[in-house]
Design a protein around this nucleic acid. Sequence first.
DNA 1: CCCCGCTCTCAGGGCTCTTTCAGGTGCGGG
DNA 2: CCCGCACCTGAAAGAGCCCTGAGAGCGGGG
Lengths: 220, 220
Amino acid sequence: MIEDEKNLASALKRGLQAEGASVDIALTGTDGLWMAEENPYDALVVDIMLPGANGFQICERLRGQGNWTPILMLTAKNGELDEAEALDAGADDYLTKPFSYVVLQARLRALLRRGVTERPATLVAGDLTVDPATRRVSRGDEEIGLTAREFSVLEYLMRRAGDVASKRNVLENVWDYDFDGDPNIVEVYIRYLRNKVDRPFGRKSIETVRGAGYRIAADG
Amino acid sequence: MIEDEKNLASALKRGLQAEGASVDIALTGTDGLWMAEENPYDALVVDIMLPGANGFQICERLRGQGNWTPILMLTAKNGELDEAEALDAGADDYLTKPFSYVVLQARLRALLRRGVTERPATLVAGDLTVDPATRRVSRGDEEIGLTAREFSVLEYLMRRAGDVASKRNVLENVWDYDFDGDPNIVEVYIRYLRNKVDRPFGRKSIETVRGAGYRIAADG
DNA sequence: CCCCGCTCTCAGGGCTCTTTCAGGTGCGGG
DNA sequence: CCCGCACCTGAAAGAGCCCTGAGAGCGGGG
């Protein structure tokens, strides 16, 4: 999220995090551009009015580089800069300030679903399925209720089903990139997940690879 | 960019940045190697003549670690070190000094377009396979469980299948670069590996080359 | 205002893996 | 044929990884 109003930025960040998203904030256009160039984000939320480089410039620059990360642009109601211009510059959608949080959330979700990134509708491993769009998880016919964090961790593991994901990997992708807390948090969430998706079914989908990380077998 | 001539380095950096690239500079071979190991760069520009470690060593070291970041090598016109050697060492392309900026730019673009040098997903030697992504090892259809250290040692040997890896090599790449413990640890792990990947199958994949190190035959 | 669910921290403990060490074995050179 | 050095081996101590239960902080909803 590239947004210079700190209050707005941190409020949105908290909201999105509560749903399990992992959010980085840039307060200036130049910082934001740099971060967007360096990291493979799922989507960007970009304000138009920014110190450094403005939203249009960021869009054009990224698109010019062949970077097609979905962009949601925030435009000012009475701004002389039209919304159409935002789309012309390469944004995928726009939102007029002021806007409600739920609308932002819905638009973002739509962008992700549409996603340029080839993102399978549902992730499957054996009889375990995870649907990022609806945020539902089920084993066979039985639906499983997960918290936001639990869901994110499971989603991440499922996206790389078969591969080993290190704790560092999980931290950087599910928590923030520069997370520096106790890595033990990952172990804790693995336990929560096992208690919900494995134990009740007598299964062992989530495997510990000692010294390396965790793995979900591609076939469940 | 690993280049010790500050003027050249910063001139190139400015040029590349003007086109939207993001450039880090290392002035010594050792710094450069470290940075290349720690960060996922899109490409490296490496001078041959460097304080610390030279360009060849950097190439070999990175390739040995399974790091296939595209490398553009800068060679000296009258250098006794041939360009062919650069390619042998694992560079993807080379440029003879002095060169014009536009040529460098064009070569770099070509490297990026070509994309990452295709890395083999799994390492194979006869019927023995090692998959770094999933951390699975198998002989034929039988899966073999290895500990973290065992896996690392085997992976290292497999990456240079057919070549002899000295104990020093193994220590520097699997343990720390400046490991100063007892080199006997390598012998111990070779034994563990033989007990797991050879003995049960009546095979002798891991060969001792007395006075030189160990080797895994490329065909198992 | 209280309760409840979610996230995260912390400390303890089990168990596997890693490393060390001391002594044995065998190859190769003299 | 013998000796030395490089390599091999078994066992045991130590370290570190991972799991777990308990609980604090926080925010939302009743």
